Computed example of a mutant assay.
Amino acid sequence: MSFLAPIAVPAPLTARALQALREDILAARLAPGETLSEAATASRLGLGKAPVRAALARLAEEGLVQPVPRRGWVVSLVTVRDIHEVFDLRLLLEPEAARRAARHPHARMGAEALARLDAVCAAGYRPEEAETALGFLEANRAFHVAVAELSGNARLARQVGRLLDESTRMLVLGLRRRDRSGEMAHEHRALIAALVAGEAAQAAELMQAQVAASRAMVLEALTAPDAGLAV
């Protein structure tokens, strides 16, 4: 007898609506605080109201939207508290992951894969195009998760991945105001060198600096006078 609840797999139309809405929210095409009507959203996506409603309910579980009585749904705000909570956890976990990765016997082999991911990060990012920002951040996420995986702790890598998922929308908003992609690519290369050399303390320090710089970029974007976002 199994005590594990079955994993609910979205129906095809719901999955299609879920993917489209999640990407729109993460890319900030649907802005924080924007109201979503089920009927209007269904019409825009060319779907029925039922899969759209199911997709919005799933996004509510992820914290990306909130139901509002008699208004429909509202895209969740990004707040200063959200940013600090996510980046505080990243600063606790990722430097330690980098420290352990530098001590791992397979660090040199892993560095080759990291270099390939860094090349993807460095290619084709244009701040004015949300799609390229998402592509860049997807590669950046893969890079950071790969570093955490080199630590040898699978649970640590999964937690880092979840935090990076939460920070995606924050980073999209930050990159719109300040293109830090070039700096991030330089930081990646320095981190790869530290991992290859087995410099654990330096690897942790470089990761700490990179995550802190990303938080500063996001906070600057969110708290700018013309940002139009609630803090």
Rank of each mutant, 00 (worst) to 15 (best):
A194S: 12
H186G: 12
R141D: 11
H144A: 08
V86C: 06
E199S: 04
A193I: 01
L77P: 12
A111S: 14
A146D: 03
L195M: 05
A97K: 10
H84P: 10
A98F: 09
V80M: 13
L92E: 13
E94T: 08
R103I: 02
G182L: 00
Y125D: 00
R177S: 13
H106Y: 12
F87D: 01
A130G: 13
R158G: 02
D82R: 01
R169V: 02
E149G: 09
A113K: 13
D82V: 01
R108I: 15
A107C: 05
E96F: 10
V145H: 07
N153M: 10
L175K: 06
H106A: 08
R126L: 10
D82P: 05
M170A: 06
C121F: 07
L156H: 09
E149K: 15
A101W: 08
H186E: 12
E183V: 01
I83N: 01
D82M: 09
R169E: 00
E187W: 11
A148E: 13
A101P: 04
M170E: 15
F136W: 07
T79L: 15
S76P: 00
A148K: 14
A123D: 11
L195F: 06
R126F: 02
R178C: 00
P95Y: 06
A204W: 04
N140H: 05
A98D: 01
Y125H: 10
D118N: 15
E85F: 09
L114W: 14
V160H: 14
A139N: 01
A113H: 15
R116Y: 02
A203D: 05
G124K: 03
V172Y: 02
A97W: 07
D179S: 12
R100W: 07
A102N: 07
L175G: 10
D82N: 14
A185C: 06
L77T: 10
V120M: 08
R100H: 11
A197K: 15
R141A: 08
A185N: 04
E166S: 11
A142L: 12
E131F: 01
R100K: 11
T168R: 15
G135T: 14
H106I: 00
D82A: 06
H186Y: 01
A119Y: 02
D82I: 00
L137I: 12
T132Y: 00
V86E: 08
L175T: 05
E128P: 03
A197R: 13
